[in-house]
């Protein structure tokens, strides 16, 4: 791992803690989200070396992080979205969305279209990963626990 990658991982970690505090996550839940934020970019740095294509890596990381979120949500009895939203912050295609809009304003179709499609790919990969894990968690719950309790 190079120095820049380590700086990136730590910066992403601090950034996601910042968002977690801003979204009013407290106590144990804050620690859990912070760990998620650390691992989301760590996984990216590791996986991007072996797998071609950022969207695929994004999808895998979203699956892993939201599985972690599902587990932590059940342990700490809180909604899953708290962990998913903040732990995935380093992966959020904010920069890419920004460039898309800048290109749109410049009116250059040749740079705008690929960037727009790329942003949509990243966002879709992220959300699909989250959905896959959420559905898997529901199936797992039904099959193995089959509890008919009022779980929300």
């Amino acid at each position: 791992m190079t120095q820049t990658e380590i700086i990136q991982i730590l910066a992403g970690f601090v950034g996601s803690i910042g968002f977690a505090i801003l979204f009013n996550i407290r106590g144990k839940r804050l620690i859990a989200t912070a760990i998620g934020g650390l691992f989301s970019w760590l996984l990216f740095v590791v996986l991007i070396k072996y797998i071609k294509g950022e969207p695929v890596v994004y999808f895998i990381i979203a699956c892993v992080i939201s599985t972690y979120a599902e587990i932590m949500a059940r342990v700490l009895k809180t909604p899953t979205s708290a962990f998913v939203t903040t732990s995935l912050v380093p992966l959020i295609p904010g920069g890419s969305l920004y460039y898309t809009m800048v290109y749109a304003f410049q009116g250059d179709l040749n740079t705008f279209l690929p960037k727009a499609i790329y942003t949509m790919q990243l966002a879709s990969a992220l959300s699909l990963g989250v959905i896959v894990s959420t559905s898997a968690a529901r199936i797992f719950n039904k099959v193995f626990f089959n509890k008919n309790r009022n779980k929300i």
Binding site: G15, T85, L88, V89, I92, P93, G94, G95, L97, Y98, T119, A123, S124, L126, S127, L128, V130, I131
Partner: peptide, 23 residues
């Protein structure tokens, strides 16, 4: 600019929107 825009840009909003669409 990009770093400061991270707090404003609706990246989380866009991701959640697509999640809503898929669910």
């Amino acid at each position: 600019i990009i770093a400061n825009i991270m707090t404003l840009i609706p990246g989380i909003g866009l991701t959640n929107a697509i999640r809503d669409l898929f669910t």
